[in-house]
């Protein structure tokens, strides 16, 4: 199987779906002539033309709003929001319109739209350009929120998102476009709403996603050298959240650490810990620990920024704590 980058996997998914379905088109800032600010849509404008690869003004509300409207007519728009930080300018359309359009009119409408966006810190972009607010968007019923951690899942999940008849927020991570992984030549989809074991183990369960998965897998590799076998569960989808693989893993390990890049308060780890104690309290032999971002706006200075972001050593320390 070929090893390709996360960027290539996402780009392939978009290309294949646009070739497959005339109704799929892309709109967003610099997606066309520029080729995408993360170069994901490089070459698309020349191949598919300006009708299907649409450069927009810098105006996030109308990017998402127009995508919603076009989706209501049966098209399958992919709206690119350059970074998730700018999605706040379109927050009303994401949470008040896209997420509610179907329910509010008694099921008359459907919004088969994907919003692709980029989350995450670690690139010295300062406080407003470095957030990982994924959990905020996962709060709202009516949306699906997907955040892959491997090229394989990114490709399969994005294709599934484009074919979904519901609005999907597809979150990529700013520092993971060069991550490589095996991706088959043949067509495949990854269903939305299924967590997955990315590394089997028996001693402790690490639940993670996106950049957190990267940290969890690196921690697991180091822990293995000390004879500790961590089982790493990749959430892949934040809403709907699939807890079953975590509970199955806890049957073996009885210990859980959640790894995410966003802030700890009200975060993904908080949700997983709450559900686990509500639904699987008897499986736990230790408190659930969360590895997450410190509660500060991310600073520009690299040393300070890295001190605020969760690191592999933090994951290892948390594992040692729950095994103590």
């Amino acid at each position: 199987m070929a090893k390709i980058t996360m960027r290539q996997a996402i780009s392939q998914a978009l290309w294949e779906e646009m070739e497959r379905d005339e109704n799929v088109f892309i709109l967003g800032e610099e997606v066309g002539i520029w080729g995408g600010t993360y170069a994901v849509t490089k070459g698309f404008y020349d191949h598919f033309g300006e009708k299907r690869v649409r450069d927009t003004p810098i105006a996030e509300a109308v990017i998402v709003g127009a995508a919603i409207g076009a989706a209501m007519t049966g098209l399958r728009p992919i709206a690119e929001i350059m970074t998730i930080n700018f999605a706040f300018s379109a927050m009303d359309h994401i949470v008040n319109e896209a997420a509610k359009m179907r329910a509010m009119f008694g099921g008359q409408m459907r919004v088969p739209m994907v919003i692709r966006t980029v989350s995450g810190g670690g690139r010295q972009l300062g406080a407003t350009h470095s957030q990982t607010p994924d959990a905020v968007f996962a709060h709202f019923p009516g949306l699906k929120v997907v955040a892959p951690g491997t090229p394989y899942d990114a490709k399969g999940l994005l294709k599934a998102a484009i074919r979904s008849d519901d609005p999907v927020l597809f979150i990529e991570h700013a520092t993971m476009y060069q991550v490589r992984g095996e991706v088959p030549e043949e067509e495949y989809l990854v269903p939305i709403g299924q967590s997955k074991i990315q590394r089997p183990g028996r001693d402790v369960t690490l639940a993670a996603y996106s950049k957190g998965l990267d940290l969890a897998l690196k921690a697991a590799a180091q822990l293995a050298q000390e004879g500790i076998e961590a089982e790493v569960i990749d959430l892949r989808t934040l809403r709907p959240l699939d807890m079953q693989p975590i509970y199955q893993s806890l049957e073996k390990t009885n210990r859980l650490v959640v790894v995410e890049e966003g802030w700890k308060s009200y975060g993904v780890g908080a949700e997983i810990a709450a559900r686990t104690q509500e639904e699987a309290f008897d499986l736990l032999d230790a408190p659930i620990l969360r590895v997450a971002q410190k509660e500060v706006p991310l600073p520009y200075n690299s040393t300070l920024e890295q001190a605020a972001l969760p690191q592999v050593v933090d994951v290892i320390a948390a594992v040692q704590e729950v095994l103590r």
């Binding site: 998402v64 127009a66 409207g69 076009a70 209501m72 007519t73 098209l75 319109e97």
Partner: peptide, 13 residues
């Protein structure tokens, strides 16, 4: 908020 959505409906046509 429905003005951007209207733009999208028109785009569909």
């Amino acid at each position: 908020a429905h003005l951007p959505i209207a733009a999208g409906l028109a785009l569909g046509d």
